[in-house]
Amino acid sequence: MILTKSRIDLFELNPYEPCPCDSGAKFKFCCYKKAKASKPKRIIDLSYSDGRIHNFVKQFWEKTDFHTCFAFNKEECDDLIKSAHSIQNNRILNRISKDGHLYTISSTGTKEGPVSYLNKISRNKASTFFGFCNIHDTELFRPIEKKEYIGESIQNFLFAFRAHAIEHHKKLRKLNSQKNIFIEFPFTMLEKEHIYVYRVAQLDVRDCSVDYKVFKKDYSNANFDNFRTLYRKLDFEVSFAACSSFAVEYDLEGNIMNDIYSVGYEHMPSIYVNVYPTSGGTNILLSYHLNNDGTYKNYFDQLEKLKNEDLLKYLNFLLIQYTENIFFDPSFIENLSEKQKNSLLKSFDSSIYPIEKAILISEGSYYKFNLFEKNMDKSDS
């Protein structure tokens, strides 16, 4: 990326912008002197064991958690903010769990940097976030929690909104994480790489806030027809479930839709993805708001033309490339070969570290797994 005058603020804190410590004061009159006086040091001591580094990173991330309710009619909120499931626990996660557990892809800190691994967790903790109060977690999502999907516009709206909510919450946590680094290590407020991460996090939150306002307006007007939703029903159960929103970089013809690796100033819209097993089948829902026709209309036209076989091949890539909020049946993961597990994790990493993609391709290991392998035990039951 070429640094221009219009982009200089991506790498520097403006003296008169709000201080990242959230004091409300301008940076120049708040933490600037502290940042200048702070002595640079390693944030993570490389003399630590990998286990200690992992615990440090985990605790730092846990400090960013917060409770809120993303529902639109705040006056009706309950005081209790639940650990809400973005993927329904009793009708979806229970179908892919074994002895109350399932797998997800997690990251751990090491001396060499972040490393992805397959993490076995309780399904009661899977896909949870503190994003809705007790009332709204139940009442707002009743049309998709208590009713099978039949393509109603309110259902399409709610599946998209829940995918938005968990990503919005996560983006706010990532912004809080960088703010916490600034506070604990003030010298980082003058370091370009940390300021760049801060700018990316700010823009991610900005994009989510823009999208949230659109959801709120539609909900307030009871206008649920503003989403284009591609729906496919498979005749077998998959061994995973996913719920996420993200901006897609390229369409199926290789045309760029969002320059996701460069930091720009324009809104970068998301698509909303839900894939989950039902009794004897699988539901696939891909959506975008019609406000974003200019970005995604041709892309969805291309997706609509795909036969199921080709769509599944594409989703096998899309889900691992773009989302962390995906959970797997333990039997599926444990039956993968070591080569397939390595391909799954490294392909996931390649979305963050492009050099991994080149390595995997050279090894013939890029996306050498099939998320949509038929679960014969469930399909035949």
Results as ranks from 00 to 15, higher is better:
277 P>Y: 06
22 D>K: 14
370 N>T: 03
373 E>H: 01
40 P>K: 04
42 R>V: 01
377 D>N: 08
51 G>M: 12
338 E>A: 10
24 G>W: 03
71 A>S: 07
202 Q>M: 15
130 F>S: 08
222 A>H: 09
228 R>C: 03
248 V>T: 11
49 S>W: 10
220 S>A: 06
142 R>S: 14
319 L>I: 15
201 A>Y: 13
274 N>K: 11
61 W>P: 00
153 S>E: 14
332 F>H: 06
17 E>I: 08
231 Y>I: 12
338 E>V: 05
151 G>C: 07
30 C>L: 07
136 H>A: 02
51 G>I: 09
360 L>M: 13
49 S>V: 13
54 H>P: 03
256 I>E: 14
119 N>H: 11
164 H>P: 00
208 C>R: 08
247 A>P: 14
265 Y>I: 10
253 E>C: 09
305 K>E: 13
320 I>Y: 03
77 C>L: 01
99 D>R: 13
153 S>P: 02
5 K>W: 09
278 T>D: 08
37 A>Y: 00
335 N>Y: 00
129 F>C: 05
295 T>P: 00
214 V>H: 09
69 C>R: 00
80 L>W: 00
183 I>R: 13
270 S>T: 10
309 E>T: 11
234 L>G: 09
135 I>G: 00
169 H>T: 02
104 T>H: 09
246 F>Q: 09
105 I>T: 04
185 F>Y: 15
153 S>A: 14
372 F>Q: 02
167 E>V: 12
121 I>N: 01
379 S>Y: 07
286 L>E: 08
216 K>Q: 08
371 L>Y: 02
126 A>Q: 05
334 E>I: 07
205 V>F: 02
46 L>P: 06
317 F>Q: 10
251 D>R: 06
209 S>V: 07
61 W>K: 12
7 R>S: 15
290 L>M: 12
28 K>Q: 11
264 G>E: 13
179 K>H: 10
74 K>Q: 04
272 Y>R: 06
23 S>G: 15
27 F>I: 11
1 M>V: 14
276 Y>W: 05
356 E>A: 10
210 V>M: 09
140 L>V: 08
45 D>R: 08
165 A>M: 03
289 H>L: 12
374 K>V: 13
223 N>D: 15
30 C>V: 08
140 L>P: 00
355 I>H: 11
195 I>N: 09
216 K>F: 02
338 E>F: 01
355 I>Y: 14
60 F>T: 11
290 L>V: 09
39 K>D: 04
356 E>F: 13
373 E>T: 04
260 I>M: 12
193 E>N: 11
35 A>T: 06
84 A>K: 02
263 V>F: 12
248 V>C: 09
160 A>G: 08
272 Y>L: 07
212 Y>R: 13
153 S>F: 07
249 E>H: 13
273 V>I: 12
188 T>P: 05
72 F>G: 00
246 F>P: 10
48 Y>E: 15
338 E>T: 07
166 I>S: 08
137 D>P: 03
91 R>E: 12
296 Y>E: 06
280 G>A: 07
257 M>H: 04
331 S>I: 10
299 Y>P: 09
66 F>P: 03
161 F>K: 12
300 F>N: 05
28 K>V: 07
94 N>A: 08
280 G>L: 03
